[in-house]
Design a protein around this nucleic acid. Structure first.
Lengths: 243, 243
DNA sequence: CGTGACGTAAAAGTCATACTTATTTGATGG
DNA sequence: CCATCAAATAAGTATGACTTTTACGTCACG
């Protein structure tokens, strides 16, 4: 055993809070499958493992429970729940899974989600976007064109992310809007995987400009169709990278 | 003051846990707007209000924080966050909002979400559904037909919900699958609103049968198109009910 | 040999208290 | 007027005592 001494706790690591530290360790571990569904954790074991008090462990466990990652039952312990019951829409869960071995699978799910949501969002945006949002949109689209050649992927990515964020926000649907972070994550992840490869697909760049035009013109049908083409491209790309 | 006595707590209401009781009171209150964004709650105030210990309040607050409903900061208190930052995909948040004054708005968001997701899910289902799932699908569709006339809405609803659940599950996408509960909630809510009115739209019933056929035939394009028609119908219905 | 009632113990849940730490506020002094 | 530092405040953490639920084994009875 490696006790640091009879009194007090060793090494206050002073993150934003001890419970966060526990959460940021347990969450990824569970979503990564280190503790397969059915695994039982006992709180006093966790106390010792992380060298923290009951208070801290319980708070972390409570949060994991609210994500349906675990279930806490008296006389049993904290049981890891089956994967199908996890709150896969929880942004935190998404981040944890993107950081773990489930990343490819997660990226596929998310890309399929994008492919369903974004065209609809673009259609709504064409009807609801404010003039300011239209302006932002065309600006980002033009910046994408400008940075689409000559190893400027980081800059390109910034505008790509911003573009899709505006679309989702301009849809006027709060739920679509909240997917901005997720889409950002997917786009970023995708870029990292091919950063050494080529410049972005010129067709995709053009499509973004078309979407911006369609939204500005209030043409919902066109905005939806062009966006669909973008996301279909993203899906196809996934199949090529991991068939 | 209404103290129950000098020692102990009064009335153990023994829900599944005190923290749950606090959560189930605070959560709805916040999402209902009883505490507008910016409102600051102090934990010791909550302790007194709910007549529970620090431990319990902290656990509840921790969960609310993980939903991004509140933010807890030292020397300040527990602050209600702006609506745009809430985890609107959290099933619990969705339920709370559906139970509160935000219900109409929430139903609209969710219906728009359905309208984006379900057609895509149906398309995927046509490619991935197992024979068993196809069988379930046609069975539910036929039962919908059978119960579509003569004041059998409750029974109809059961099969409607089941049908859409199977579609979402058969899509093979875990995120789509997890929307089953949400869709169920929407369908149930919709039925409750018109339970005294008419039988379900015969066209919608037929469309469900067509979707089942398309999925069985592996015709993704048709499955997607028919499902889209169903959800568009749902959207139109909303406009009629609350233009 | 099966079956149901019952007691026991294990683990989470709760409480009260003492103490720590970060942060706001404002007072003090340059 | 601004920088700096001190005090007050509310959340964060630790801990020990106690309660409540419930799985599991035991034993008596059919």
């Amino acid at each position: 055993m490696d006790e640091q001494g009879p009194e007090g706790r060793g090494q206050r690591p002073r993150g934003r809070g001890l419970h966060d530290r526990v959460l940021e360790s347990l969450g990824p571990a569970i979503t990564a499958g280190d503790y397969p569904p059915g695994t039982v954790l006992r709180t006093d074991e966790l106390e010792r493992r992380y060298d923290v008090s009951r208070t801290v462990v319980r708070e972390a466990v409570r949060v994991l429970e609210s994500m349906h990652l675990v279930e806490s039952r008296r006389r049993v312990g904290v049981t890891v729940r089956p994967t199908e019951e996890w709150d896969v829409f929880d942004p935190q869960v998404i981040r944890w899974r993107l950081a773990g071995p489930d990343r490819p699978r997660q990226l596929r799910s998310l890309t399929a989600l994008r492919s369903a949501i974004e065209p609809a969002a673009a259609g709504l945006a064409a009807e609801h976007a404010t003039p300011e949002q239209c302006a932002e949109l065309t600006e980002h689209a033009l910046n994408m064109v400008a940075t689409s050649r000559g190893q400027q992927l980081p800059a390109y990515l910034v505008h790509d992310v911003a573009f899709h964020r505006v679309i989702l926000r301009a849809s006027g649907n709060e739920m679509f809007a909240r997917l901005g972070d997720v889409v950002a994550e997917v786009l970023t992840g995708r870029t990292q995987h091919r950063v050494m490869f080529s410049d972005p697909d010129p067709e995709a760049v053009t499509l973004h400009v078309r979407v911006a035009e369609a939204v500005r013109a209030g043409d919902a049908e066109a905005a939806e169709r062009y966006t669909k083409e973008i996301t279909v491209g993203a899906l196809r790309e996934l199949d090529i990278l991991a068939p």
